[in-house]
């Protein structure tokens, strides 16, 4: 089973084709990079896959479920972390974990055991009862990611998860992503950082609502005879006629 399949998936707002008939597949256990300039349609595409937005046309399945008819099943199968912050500043670390695990209906014992394991893993045992608002941004993001996969989803969507943090923290964040992938969680990630694109198993690059390229980072570099993913991206993004929003 493919983790995600999309066939001619489109989203039209009025006369504007935000997402224009994209087709791609994501394998289970893969780290799939979803790249594109601002306004290229990444977020809209991702929102359709998460069930936050109804596609205008085309087909798509997520974790084997249809995005039109089986949104409830999809919601149970996925995790989600957005570029905007998704933890509550006025709640402690433990309370945040408990709340998010609670809305996925996880039993109390599961939450308790997993929380202490997670805090140990993140070296946050001493901070467990501190409010999230007092943590540095990098820690918050790592915590937000851990919370997004706390309920053990098959697939996690990350929307520009590393915005605004330093390279070292980003590297640490990617270690968490690798660890999640090793546990079998498929990762679907949008990013602006081309060094991060190199960490992905495969990447797609969106330009003006369409997927212009999709391959492994090595494959893409070879095809566009570029030295880095940055060069690949620039070559493709230059073709864009749509301006960033």
């Amino acid at each position: 089973m493919k983790m995600i399949t999309a066939k001619n998936l489109s989203k039209v707002f009025g006369g504007f084709k935000a997402v224009d008939a994209i087709s791609f597949e994501v394998e289970p256990g893969e780290i799939f990079g979803f790249l594109g300039a601002n306004g290229a349609g990444k977020t809209t595409a991702m929102r359709m896959l998460c069930g936050l937005s109804r596609p205008s046309s085309g087909e798509a399945t997520v974790a084997g479920f249809d995005v039109y008819r089986q949104q409830e099943q999809i919601k149970r199968a996925i995790g989600y972390m957005s570029q905007k912050f998704s933890l509550y500043d006025d709640l402690t670390i433990t309370e945040n974990i408990r709340f998010y695990a609670g809305i996925y209906g996880k039993p109390g014992r599961f939450i308790k055991e997993k929380t202490s394991a997670l805090l140990r893993e993140l070296h946050l045992e001493t901070e467990a009862d501190k409010r999230v608002g007092s943590l540095p941004l990098g820690w918050k993001q790592k915590l937000a990611f851990s919370v997004a996969i706390f309920h053990e989803p098959q697939l996690v969507f990350l929307d520009e998860p590393t915005g605004g943090v330093d390279p070292i923290t980003r590297r640490e964040f990617w270690n968490l992503i690798y660890a999640a992938a090793e546990k079998g969680i498929t990762v679907f990630v949008t990013t602006h950082y081309m060094d991060e694109a190199e960490y992905c198993n495969r990447v797609s690059i969106m330009v003006d609502g369409r997927i212009e390229a999709l391959d492994t980072p090595a494959g893409l570099k070879q095809h566009y005879s570029a030295a880095s993913m940055n060069d690949v991206f620039l070559q493709l993004a230059r073709k864009a006629t749509r301006s960033a929003d």
């Binding site: 149970r76 996925i78 998010y100 809305i103 996925y104 969507f157």
Partner: peptide
């Protein structure tokens, strides 16, 4: 958004 993505 996170809540709307969840099954609640």
């Amino acid at each position: 958004e996170v809540m709307l993505v969840s099954p609640v």
